[in-house]
Design a protein around this nucleic acid. Structure first.
Length: 309
DNA sequence: AAGGTGGACAACCGCTGCGTG
DNA sequence: ACACGCAGCGGTTGTCCACCT
């Protein structure tokens, strides 16, 4: 496709946008709305492709665009989200109000470049390993019947989907116990004594007002919305392990930190299993094998972290 | 001061999925 | 069921600019 059919019919300008072009586009869209993008350049008096107008508006001219560098909180969120959804920049952008997919993508690519230059960076894994890993992440989401169709439509792994790193942040865990399970709530309360639980901790990046899981701006096609309603029912609670809540100044989480988190999670899971006997209801992004996950053993849990640990 | 280099950002290209006739 | 128009997405490329030698 490349240039749109509409652009083949007339001469279109390429390259950087001039201030005059920006002004024309802003005036037109704020006055009339974009409607059909194909008609925008013609009606706005621009010699641009409609697609180019759309991109310019969405990525640069939109009034709600947040300019400037990423905050540490945003960086942290991007890293976590990338561990969950991979290179789904648009999904990530929905969790970061004011940020565009293009911006996040550029930021991530720059970040990767930096990391690749560092010999201490975690080793990369083969594409097959990565695909397997991501497949697990999405299969975990499939574990919830109401979301099955959604996941099939939006999150099936495509062959071209790859992440450069294995997810170094598999630290999202959900308690899928029944909402009316009082005992489970008690256990959550106990766990809260030892771990920050997003649903009840104001310090957690995942539970703050800016949390992607509680963000009202999220639409029905974004991953975190899958989790939100369940959190609201107190039957699926994202748990953030405190020992990895802080990264160093370069945005890295150390191996030691991940190891520590693994231990913390295992303690919590074993505690949970001891109270629930054979029906553990913890689900990891990283390990759940689908609808039969209730059969998941602690061995599965213990192996749920990156192989380089 | 001039040229080279790399990072950050903007924009383009090509593909995919959805809605509609 | 199919083709077409369209929007959206992710990968890639181009451009600018600061920094270094």
């Amino acid at each position: 496709m490349g240039h749109h059919y509409c652009c083949k019919q007339r001469k279109v300008k390429k390259g950087l946008w001039s201030p005059e072009e920006d002004e024309k586009l802003i005036i037109y869209i704020t006055t009339y709305g974009h409607g059909c993008w194909r008609k925008v350049p013609e009606q706005a008096g621009l010699q641009r492709c409609g697609k180019s107008c759309r991109l310019r508006w969405l990525n640069y001219l939109r009034p709600d665009i947040k300019r400037g560098g990423f905050t540490p909180e945003e960086e942290k969120l991007i890293i976590r989200l990338h561990g969950v959804v991979g290179n789904r920049w648009a999904h990530m952008a929905k969790c970061l109000p004011g940020r565009t997919d293009n911006e996040i993508k550029n930021y991530w690519n720059s970040w990767i470049k930096k990391k690749l230059e560092k010999p201490s960076s975690p080793p990369t894994t083969s594409p097959s390993t990565i695909d397997h890993h991501q497949q697990h992440n999405y299969q975990m989401v499939c574990n919830f019947p109401n979301q099955q169709d959604f996941v099939n439509r939006n999150f099936m792994i495509k062959p071209r989907d790859q992440t450069l790193y294995p997810s170094p942040f598999p630290l999202l865990m959900f308690d899928a116990a029944s909402a009316d399970d009082i005992q489970a709530n008690n256990i959550n309360a106990q766990a809260a004594e030892h771990f920050p639980i997003a649903a009840s901790s104001s310090s957690s990046s995942l539970s703050s007002s800016a949390s992607p899981f509680t963000n009202n701006n999220m639409d029905a096609h974004s991953l975190p919305a899958l989790v939100g309603p369940a959190i609201g029912n107190n039957n699926m609670v994202p748990i953030e392990v405190e020992s990895c809540s802080n990264m160093n100044k370069e945005g890295e989480i150390s191996i030691e930190c991940l190891q520590s988190s693994t231990q913390e999670l295992n303690v919590l899971v074993h505690s949970r299993q001891a109270q629930h006997c054979s029906s553990s209801s913890f689900h990891f992004w990283d390990t759940v094998e689908g609808p039969s996950s209730s059969k998941m053993s602690s061995a599965n849990i213990l192996s749920s972290f990156p192989s380089y640990l």
